[in-house]
Write a protein that binds this DNA or RNA. Sequence first.
DNA 1: TCTGGGGTCCTAGGACCC
DNA 2: TCTGGGGTCCTAGGACCC
Length: 420
Amino acid sequence: MFGLVDGNNFYASCERAFKPELQGEPVCVLSNNDGCVIARSQECKDLGIGMGQPIHEVSPALRRRLRIFSANFALYGDLSGRVVSILRDQFARVAVYSIDESFVDFQGIPAEQREQVAAGVRARIRQWVGIPCCVGIGPTKTLAKLANKLAKKTPHGVVTVLPGDAVLEKFPAEDVWGVGRRLTARLGAEGILTAADLSRADPETLRARYGVVLARTQRELQGIACANLEESEPDRKQIVVSRSFGSEVVALDDLQQAVATFSQRACEKLRARSLHANGVWVWCNTNPFKPDAPQYHPSGAMPLITPTSDTREVLRLAQHLVRAMYREGYRYKKAGVGLLDLTHGDHQQGDLFALADPRSKSLMEVMDRANARFGRGALGLASSAWRPRKGALERPLWGMNQTALSGRYTTSWHELAIAR
DNA sequence: TCTGGGGTCCTAGGACCC
DNA sequence: TCTGGGGTCCTAGGACCC
């Protein structure tokens, strides 16, 4: 049996964890650059604020009633890790699925105790981390996900769903894991409206019309497990770092600086996973929401001769690509850097004619250690540096808007919460 | 004024190989 | 009247997830 443990309105709950006065208040968290709403407390949903809604579309009067926060992923990531450590204490096998969701294995726990164990874990997470969560239990991941959605609507927060249960008759097909907007429309046209309908549909027809993905979903709804609990995450195939700019950028200099910063961050993520990149991809965009302004969205990629995780080498390519694609007369709003064809460092093809820099590995290790100890950005490459003005680092033109950022209560000594 | 970021898998079609 | 068969790799586009 699978369990799915999912933090309720996760980012909004994280903000509440350190600000108890936000209980009962309509809390919402914005995307990077303070653009769209990406998390809402129940009170916020009740006010009609939509998921993904641009915050500037919300009337000023309504906005004043909201408690709005800029995204604080350092905080959310840390609280997520604390939730997972509680799960690992309780369950032999845990598969972290996303920042706010983990699958757990109920093997070894008698059937009649499952819900009780789930309730206990839920209470512990609430007390120790301060995050409310719900648990869905089922014989397949798809049914556990479904059960979790139902659990959100109950006060006790734990629900078990078995194949053929009556609740499937009322569960909308669009809420089934793996059924998105497009499929919902096509299935609806055929009269497949609920999870039960989908479970009963003719398998051959389903497979032929919609492909193997939906065919698997159907079997999972029938209680036939098609996916296992994957405890170890498969290696990434690509790593992408991209951001919209706080303000539009015109000069090549600024664009290069942004791309250098993103490249550096991408390489840090790469090394954290002990991977090497075989190619670099860079792109930038003008503002698509200003159709009257001249539009330009170039992109370019280059292979690396030897797989690398050295920021300097990635940077050289990235900068070359930006210079080649840059055109004057455009106002750039977004840029991104991708590392492609990732491979493990231990089995790679060398370059017969190039001498590997023997210092590269140690240099990168020193940078990573310094940044781990003194905070991200403590040590970096000059091309990505934010320009100091009047002795202080000032947000560059392209830097993110974060007007309502909460503290890093659990990851920075300087920002520890103070109890009075 | 203001509009997120980061992933995966599947499929179909074309190029190419023997 | 007549046109082989079977395979891989790559890419673009579509769909989904959080």
